[in-house]
Design a binder for these strands. Structure first.
Lengths: 165, 165
DNA sequence: TAGGTTTGCTTCGAACTCGAAGCAAGGTGA
DNA sequence: TCACCTTGCTTCGAGTTCGAAGCAAACCTA
């Protein structure tokens, strides 16, 4: 257990570990709830929710992939599954023949609405039972700049694509 | 985009989304760095780091799986890979013939030490460039109770096993 | 407007993940 | 001590994930 050559700032280390661990546990719990309440995985739920929040319930594949931090090929696969069960539809983008637009269907919206109460219950129970309203605000204030910075300064490859105008 | 029946507290919602998004982006970036610097995945890195921090560099399989929020079967698979390249060794637990103890080797320690500087660099660049020392402390203060609460109150099944004495 | 590059998505193969089932060792109670 | 339940790990099969390669449309630029 002797310290390696580089001394790590323990304050930052703890924050980093806590973040990783909380998100892991939270995601794990959410996965269970979504499976039980709507036969959804977390990824599929994220896809549907993003679409539901998008104007007209539709988005470009690439933009959607970036929004949920997911590979393009993975999204193609999941979109295929969701389309097969009628929760989304895919169409060529009107403005760009290469592009594909994915849109949520009424059934998709209904499913999201159906699982949302349980979803919120889990998040409330695990995350917000320990955080006051102010705490939540503080957390957002801390993490928002971090997120924005990450989106701008991609690690190596795998860059977020240009913003759509 | 009419609101569904349940009104969601937007403050909490933002905090939750920010958390999920930041951890996703962070993990993604870390994955790249570990791959480049040490041919490691995030999971394998977590396994090695946990072991390195454990007394005598060893732990029970089950306890390790709980510590990193990972399935037992998944851990068996990864442990097999790590053992094959000499970064860990597995042995029957001395006190319980069923149990398996996994221990980090010198090569494993060396590899962790080798990737740590790059690892910290990524975390610093993405996470802590946007957070002051105080911010980091605040973040830890917010997330630590959450983590502890999650560990105690598992979602449904998949509960953390008894603490080892 | 032809050639080459870039962009957007899908296909493909390999690796990873999980839960269920399997198997062996550890309890436990009559 | 013998059945029976529990515990700890592994094996197995099915589903998921990713990057690389493939392909077509779009965008240069001369």
């Amino acid at each position: 257990m002797t310290e390696p050559t580089h001394a790590v700032d323990p304050v930052r280390l703890r924050a980093y570990f806590a973040l990783i661990e909380v998100s892991g546990l939270l995601r794990h719990a959410i996965e269970q709830q979504l499976q039980a309440d709507g036969d959804l995985t977390f990824v599929r739920f994220q896809i549907l929710r993003r679409l539901q929040l998008s104007p007209a319930g539709r988005q470009r594949m690439t933009d959607l992939a970036d929004a949920i931090v997911f590979s393009r090929s993975g999204l193609t696969y999941q979109a295929g599954l969701l389309e097969k069960v009628g929760l989304v539809v895919r169409n060529p983008s009107p403005d760009d023949e290469r592009g594909v637009t994915i849109a949520i269907t009424d059934a998709g919206r209904a499913l999201v609405d159906a699982v949302m109460p349980g979803h919120e219950a889990v998040v409330d129970r695990l995350l917000f039972s320990q955080l006051s309203q102010d705490d939540a605000r503080t957390l957002t204030a801390l993490l928002t700049p971090v997120r924005d910075h990450m989106r701008e300064a991609p690690p190596r490859s795998a860059r977020p694509r240009r913003a759509r105008s």
